[in-house]
Simulated assay, not measured.
Amino acid sequence: MVKQIKRVGLILISALILAASVNLFMSPHHVAAGGASGLGVIIEYALNIDRSITVLIFNVIVLVLAALFLGKEYFFNTLIGAIAFPLFLGLLPEYMVVSDRFLSIIIGSIGWAIGVSILYNIQASIGGTTIPPLILEKYFHISPSIGLLVSDAIVVCLSLYIFGVESFFFALISIAITSVVMTYLETGMNRKKAIIIVTSMEPSEFRQKMDAITVQTLVMFTVQSGEENKQDTMKLIVASDKEYPALKQAINQIDPQAFVMAYNVSEVSDLGLTYHPSDI
């Protein structure tokens, strides 16, 4: 029961954040960055129909489609958000919090990304244009990302006709900002580097020299060398971006001929690699 109450609370908070992003930052500057809310803003300005009514009608339709084609579980995961979002859109008045258009779009896009990321994290939704792509994926094997792209493109193109070229490009910028922020929220802000080292040195000698330089966890794996019937030891180290230059210099001092490869990772656990930043 406590878990369900917490989940409902997060859905309501997300719906409020999303409604605030639209009514306080995006819509006052005539920016409709895709989705049912963007469609609602366009219809309101074109036909004088309240955006909350448009979104609610659209959500009722997609809820019926979700129940018919995606099952009861997805229907109930979407129900609360699909009702709460248009409700908050109707209750929260449109007000221009930030007069600078570009700054307002940035804030609104970040807010939208935060709200959607919270919903994704608890496997919930506010309905809108997210449901039709899932139906297309299930029955026609069309990627949801393509379906979402097409639906957002239709709304953005409509905004070009209603609001003009400048608003059209601001809508594209908003979509790009939202995508970048959501990527960082989903994969983690505390990025790290995984460093792979292959040397011909004895594992014990290499570990001893590395331990004298750094406190990072060093994990070793036996790998097959390019030479026939020869095995080497691959070393794996996880470090922060700040620590990477010093580690790179240390490895070069220990073995200038070592093969070194580094790449970004967002989460590390187990196998002795759970990340604890050092003070170097």
Score class of each variant (00 low, 15 high):
M1Y: 11
M1E: 11
M1G: 09
Q4S: 10
I5K: 09
K6T: 12
R7W: 11
V8G: 14
I13M: 13
S14K: 13
A15Y: 15
L18I: 15
S21E: 06
F25L: 11
M26R: 09
H29V: 06
H30A: 07
V31F: 06
G34W: 08
A36P: 05
S37N: 10
V41I: 15
Y45P: 01
Y45V: 01
A46R: 09
L47Y: 09
D50A: 04
T54Q: 00
N59M: 05
I61K: 01
I61G: 00
I61H: 00
L63G: 00
V64M: 02
L65A: 03
A66I: 08
A66R: 06
A67K: 13
L68Q: 02
L68H: 00
L68K: 02
F69I: 02
F69K: 00
L70E: 00
L70Q: 03
L70R: 00
G71R: 03
E73W: 09
F76C: 02
N77I: 12
T78W: 07
L87E: 00
L89W: 04
E94V: 14
S99M: 14
L103E: 06
L103F: 14
S109N: 11
I114K: 12
V116G: 04
V116P: 08
V116I: 15
L119T: 14
I126P: 04
T129D: 05
I131W: 05
P132M: 07
P133M: 09
L136P: 07
Y139K: 03
Y139C: 06
I142R: 05
P144N: 09
V150R: 10
S151E: 10
A153F: 15
V156Q: 04
C157L: 15
L158E: 04
L158D: 05
V165H: 09
E166C: 01
L172G: 08
S174D: 03
S174A: 10
I175T: 07
I177L: 08
I177D: 01
V180M: 10
M182G: 11
T183I: 12
Y184P: 03
Y184H: 11
L185H: 12
E186M: 15
E186Q: 15
T187D: 05
G188C: 05
G188Q: 02
K192R: 10
K193T: 03
A194T: 12
A194M: 11
A194Y: 06
A194H: 04
I196R: 14
I196D: 04
I196H: 06
T199G: 01
S200W: 12
S200K: 14
P203T: 07
S204N: 10
E205S: 13
E205C: 06
F206C: 00
F206D: 00
K209A: 02
K209P: 07
K209H: 05
I213A: 06
T217I: 12
F221Q: 02
V223F: 08
V223C: 02
S225P: 10
S225M: 08
G226E: 08
G226Y: 09
G226R: 11
G226A: 07
E227V: 13
N229Q: 13
T233W: 07
K235H: 14
K235E: 11
V238W: 07
D241H: 15
E243Q: 13
A246V: 13
Q249A: 06
Q253P: 09
I254E: 01
Q257T: 12
A258K: 05
A258F: 09
F259K: 00
A262F: 07
S266G: 12
D270S: 10
G272I: 11
L273P: 03
T274Y: 03
Y275V: 01
P277E: 00
P277H: 04
S278L: 08
S278N: 07
D279E: 06
I280L: 05
